[in-house]
Write a protein that binds this DNA or RNA. Structure first.
Lengths: 121, 121
DNA sequence: ATTTTTACTATGTCAATCGTAGTACGGCAG
DNA sequence: CTGCCGTACTACGATTGACATAGTAAAAAT
C-alpha cells in the first residue's frame, strides 16, 4: 500500500480539478499532469475518472467547456473553465473538508500513541 | 451543506469502527452512539452502513463476531472484536490517511487566500 | 398496556471509480 | 515516408460502499 487508494480521494476529485481550473481554464491532459506534479506523483488520477468528472461537473454547472480552435498549435482540445457556481461549490467543499478532517482525526492514532489508548466516555 | 457528505467519509467508516473496537469489543448500537458523541453529532453513521461494514470487515478478517449470552442484562447482541489483521489494517489506514491529507491539502484554499492564487509550475 | 429504545436483517438502488479497450491526430527518429 | 511515441480523448461494463426503505422483535420506560 504505497500509493493512495482511490476510495479515499473519492468525493474530492471534483474539488481537486476545480482548484486547478480556478487558476485558469484547462483540459484533461494538462490537469492530469498538474495533479501528478503537484502531489509529487503521490496521486495520479485515472483518465476515465478525470473525464467522467468533467462530464458530471459540466452537467452540474460547475464548469463550462469550449473548444480550442486556434489554428496555431497542436491537436484540438476540449477546454473547461470554472463557473461562478463552481467557485461557490469549491468553497463549500473546502469548508466541508475542514470539518471532515476534524471528524476523521478523532479516530486516527499517531504512531506514538499505538498501545496507549486514550479515554473514551 | 451543514453536515458531512457521506462520500467524503467513504472508505473511512471501516477505520472509524476499527478505532473503537481497538478499545474493547463492541456491537452496532454502541458503536453508533460512540461515533455520534465523539464527533459531537457532526457525524452520525447510518445503521445500514454500519451493519454492512461489520459484515464486510468480518468477511475480510478484520473483526470476529461473538454472541452475548450472559443471562444478566438486556437483549442478545452480536459483539465484534478486532483481530490482529484488523489492527494491522487500521494502522495502514492511519498512514494512508496522513498521506491523503497531505495530497488533498495541496488543493484546498484557506478563506484568507481566496482571490490570491498561488503560483503553479 | 402501550410507546420508545434497543438491536438488528433484508432488499434493492445509486453514484463514483476503475479496468479494458479503442480511436485518432501530431511530431519526431530513422 | 513510415512507424512509433505522446497527446487527447470516448465507450462500456464491473465493482463497491453508502443509503433509502421496510420490517422484526425483545427490553425498558411511561
Amino acid at each position: 500500500m504505497n500509493s493512495i487508494s482511490s476510495d479515499v480521494i473519492r468525493g474530492y476529485n471534483d474539488t481537486i480539478i476545480l482548484f486547478l481550473l480556478l487558476q485558469h481554464p484547462s483540459y484533461g491532459y494538462e490537469i492530469s499532469k498538474q495533479i501528478k506534479t503537484l502531489t509529487e506523483e503521490k496521486y495520479i488520477i485515472k483518465e476515465t475518472t478525470l473525464y467522467s468528472a468533467f462530464t458530471r461537473m459540466e452537467k452540474n454547472g460547475y464548469i463550462e467547456s469550449f473548444s480550442s480552435d486556434k489554428e496555431g498549435s497542436g491537436k484540438r482540445r476540449t477546454y473547461y473553465r470554472i463557473t461562478d457556481y463552481g467557485r461557490q461549490y469549491y468553497k463549500d467543499k473546502c469548508s466541508e473538508w475542514n470539518l471532515t478532517k476534524e471528524v476523521i482525526e478523532n479516530f486516527i492514532l499517531k504512531e506514538d500513541n499505538y498501545g496507549s489508548n486514550q479515554e473514551l466516555s
